[in-house]
Design a protein around this nucleic acid. Sequence first.
DNA 1: AATGGGACCTGCGCGC
DNA 2: TGCGCGCAGGTCCCAT
Length: 267
Amino acid sequence: MPELPEVETIKRELEQAILGKKIVGVVINNAKVIREPKKEKFIAELKNTEIKKIIRRGKLLIFELSSGKSLTVHLKMTGQLIYPGNGKTSRVSFKFSNGKLLDFNDTRLFGELRILDNWQNLKFVKELGPEPFDLSEEKFSEMLKNRKTKIKILLMDQKIISGIGNLYANEALFRARIHPEQPASSLSAQEKEKLFEEIKKVLSEAIHYKGSSVDQYVQLSGEPGDYVKYHQVYDRENEPCYKCKGKVKRITLGGRGTYFCPSCQKL
DNA sequence: AATGGGACCTGCGCGC
DNA sequence: TGCGCGCAGGTCCCAT
């Protein structure tokens, strides 16, 4: 799915598109993505409410409503939000008073929509680690201490730091020249500092280019994001490393494709 | 506590 | 052309 930069891109575009607008109807084409409450109540809760505020927390989007409740949207792997939509392939479409649709598309149906009295009480949210941009280098280094876990697994753990997924974990580690299997606690102070820098840099750059369209992710308009052309290692198995011309290698870590350059990123 | 596997789903690209 | 397999940006749950 969309990781932090993709969700942030969508959030910023949503603010321009639907902030202050009123939902007048909801069409549910596949109720599987509605986690709570039940379909009918979900629709009733949204009808005639305005979007007061849009928040991103980690990879989660939160729409605060005029009713005081919130709609949360997790895009998981293949979720898309499209505005204006056409309702043709959507799992759920939200209709606004201007007649336009916000489509929630989701091929694999992993996505999760909820209406909550207080989104901060959601277990997933309570357990989320800090946002990368709200974190100090000291705290980041602290978190790696005494952790024997492979550094890449740790970077993708939302309870440690929120918003980094498989793609940006790979990219940040390459840029910091750190092997993805290196135990977190064994990173030197300089390596930790460099890694933290590169995490923030790669996320910022990706936001600047409006995300990475590797599969299903698109911006709110349906346009792809441009960051793929700046990827150094992700999905580049056997292709030459841009730094040393060696071959990019793919291994599996935590069940996910892991790409790195064995000569630039040594254990 | 940490790791490894599978589950949830659909669809794409690849090799045969 | 068709089939089977492996793979996919996330997260949860279970076994060891």
